[in-house]
Nucleic acid binder design. Structure first.
Length: 621
RNA sequence: CGGGGCGUGGCUCAGCUUGGUAGAGCGUUGCGUUCGGGACGCAAAGGUCGGAGGUUCAAAUCCUCUCGCCCCGACCA
């Protein structure tokens, strides 16, 4: 397959080696004046002139953008919205995406992964065979369609099924493993609420990889290789990121970790500990259970009239001395499974919060949501605010968080409007609930490893790696022959990187008042050489000479020959954010130019002869 | 899904309450003057006011429906 890589200067043959013009000349625009004038051999390969690249910056920010990356990408003309959550990538932005994709390719290929291309349109049967059609349709996150014959299809939101069926057909023996295949292409998810530009779109570019091994040990190796590759990828992009333990969500499977780019606008909250290195998504995080006053020896249960007292805060007021830590709140959830729906009662210590992701997992449900007022009345026989374990109908399953295990003399509701119970003891005054970890960990609570207080940060999920195990291979009967000649399900891993989201998160992390500050590795160009007045011959000549020198030195450079006033040109390049910017202006005749490192905006004059060395130094070469 | 808001030249918006044949800034085009921080002057192009229906002598403006976009929320009892 043809590689979609960008900076081609390293790959194209040198002009001298191939006689230059005849081969490349046919592709060049006839207006490439620089060709004839240039003294630099590299410009034989047609200079990258910004005047020939579609660039359209906006002076004002678009009304619908909220976060810096969305505003700046739109203002710089890098993305243009086509529909809600659907974007067109401009030429410069596409260079960015391709550069990032190329970094991903290089690091994955280094670990022996194979690039393939899977179909976007997938048949329903494939999804039924893994049992996921139901869940994805229930969650409403999958675009589905019918062909003219009425067969149902979907636009791939992810590709476990296709890849599993593909590899299963190709690999019959343990001798053919390990296998790891990946692709980089568009994914489709009908997001409830697309937002933040490229951050949460309905169509987006993603790299997804799938590993196939004969056993768990093989999976561990594959997983660690991918983890290492991911670290190299995000490091090469110069991103500040962290790896956190994560919930495996709709994909399913055992262990999983997320790669988070730290940014205030991140949609995920993460908890971490500096001393132990523990880090987890709040959906998954645990902590040391905060202390609460002991209940003491069990006492007789009392029912007390509590008119209009419905919340924990109100109860604390109503019962002086009964702090929230001695209460157990009972929350009713409407739970959806594959074949049934039910209202479930969930108990939590009064000062703590329920984590719905953990709840969903504990119940092995498709979905949970808080019960409506009507559902609560029907399930408990009481108004909202008085639910409790005491006298709860046997119809309603009862779960409790671990924080309530062995707790005595609790304050709870008792399913009677206007009443609460004191000194409730689980198992004595009501059924014994089944205990699970259902608690949301919070910043300030003790790290589960070190006990030090957890800190909180926001993160943008740019990568996710899973150990799937045999979940899909078993469901889809994808097997190989093991050493003893027995059909055995593949042990799988799956790995994703947000290829369009990562550059957006790079902008989120690297910008200032003037615009974007691209990390060099994924900048549309590493360097721009701008002539402030393209009509002046000495400026044009010097700019093209510098362009040629930089190109020959392996710099991904472009030539800004656009006819704009100097002020506008400064502003425009700052907004677009090329990492190194060289301005050839009024001192061109004296061999002086201006040199700008975009990050930090350090700007000074520089002799033309020093430009190459300074650019290379600024780029860290 | 629930609630709210907004759709008027390419972009950002005014006009709508109190109906009377559509405006500004930026951008674009031409000419001239400029030429180091989004220059200036003059001239010009560009909008069936999201769409459909209704009320009216007359609708961007009032009413109904519809489509699109944005934001908030989804109740911890």
């Amino acid at each position: 397959m043809r590689r979609l890589d960008v900076p081609s200067h390293r790959r194209l043959p040198r002009p001298g080696a191939i006689g230059g013009r005849a081969i490349h000349g046919c592709r060049r625009r006839p207006t490439a004046l620089g060709f004839r004038r240039s003294r630099a051999a590299a410009t034989l390969l047609a200079p990258m002139r910004l005047s020939q690249i579609l660039i359209s910056t906006l002076r004002e920010e678009p009304a619908d953008a909220e976060i810096p990356s969305h505003k700046l990408l739109a203002r710089a003309g890098l993305i243009v919205k086509t529909a809600a959550g659907v974007y067109t990538y401009s030429p410069l932005m596409w260079r960015v995406v391709k550069k990032f994709a190329q970094i991903v390719r290089e690091e994955l290929d280094r670990e022996g992964a194979n690039e393939v291309m899977l179909p976007i349109i997938q048949p329903k049967e494939l999804w039924v065979s893994s049992g996921r059609w139901e869940r994805y349709v229930t969650d409403g996150i999958m675009f589905t369609l019918k062909d003219r014959k009425g067969s149902e299809m979907c636009l791939g939101p992810t590709h476990e099924e296709v890849m599993t069926s593909f590899v299963s057909a190709q690999v019959n023996s343990y001798k053919q493993m390990p296998v790891n295949c990946y692709q980089i292409q568009d994914k489709f998810r009908d997001e409830i609420r697309p937002r933040f530009g490229l951050m949460r779109g309905r169509e987006f570019v993603m790299m997804d990889a799938y590993s196939f091994d004969a056993d768990e040990a093989g999976l561990d190796v594959a997983y660690q290789k991918m983890r290492a590759a991911y670290c190299r990828i995000f490091e090469r992009c110069g991103l500040e990121y962290t790896v956190v333990q994560a919930d495996s969500g709709a994909i399913g499977g055992a262990g999983s970790e997320e790669f988070m780019v730290i940014a205030d606008s991140g949609e995920d909250a993460i908890l971490f500990c500096r001393s132990s290195g523990y880090a987890a998504n709040v959906e998954k995080a645990t902590s040391k259970l905060p202390d609460a006053p002991a209940g003491g020896e069990p006492e007789a249960m009392q029912k007390i009239a509590t008119p209009d007292v419905k919340t924990v805060a109100q109860l604390e007021q109503f019962f002086p001395g009964w702090v929230s830590g001695r209460m157990a709140k009972t929350v009713l959830y409407h739970v959806t499974w594959k074949n049934k729906e039910k209202v479930v009662a969930v108990m939590m210590r009064g000062d703590l919060e329920i984590n719905e992701v953990k709840l969903t997992n504990a119940l092995d449900a498709l979905k949970v949501r808080l019960a409506t007022e009507d559902e609560i009345k029907k399930a408990t026989g009481a108004d909202v605010g008085f639910a409790g374990p005491v006298g709860l109908s046997e119809e309603v399953p009862l779960l409790a968080d671990e924080s309530l295990r062995e707790r005595t003399n609790l304050l709870t509701g008792c399913n009677e409007t206007g009443f609460h119970c004191l000194n409730v003891n689980l198992g004595r005054d009501c059924r014994m609930p089944s205990f699970k970890d259902l608690r949301t960990a919070r910043a300030g609570e003790g790290c589960p490893v070190s006990g030090e207080p957890l800190e909180e940060a926001r993160g943008i999920e740019v990568g996710h790696i899973f150990k799937l195990g045999t979940k899909y291979s078993k469901a889809m009967s994808a097997t190989f022959m093991d050493q003893s000649g027995k059909p055995t399900p593949f042990v799988m891993g799956c790995y994703g990187i947000g290829v369009s989201r990562t550059p957006a998160s790079a902008v989120e992390q690297n910008h200032d008042m003037k615009g974007i500050v691209w990390p060099p590795a994924i900048a549309p160009f590493e360097c721009v050489v701008a002539m402030l007045d393209p009509k002046r011959d000495e400026q044009q000549a010097l700019a093209e000479q510098l362009y040629g020198e930089l190109k020959d030195a392996g710099v991904d450079v472009c030539l800004d020959d656009r006819p704009m006033s100097p002020g506008a040109k400064f502003k425009d390049n700052e907004l677009i954010g090329f990492p190194v910017q060289v301005f050839v202006g009024r001192k061109a005749a004296e061999g002086q130019v201006e040199f700008l490192v975009r990050k930090g905006m350090q700007k000074d004059e520089c002799a033309a002869g020093d430009v190459k060395a300074r650019v290379l130094a600024a780029l860290g070469r």
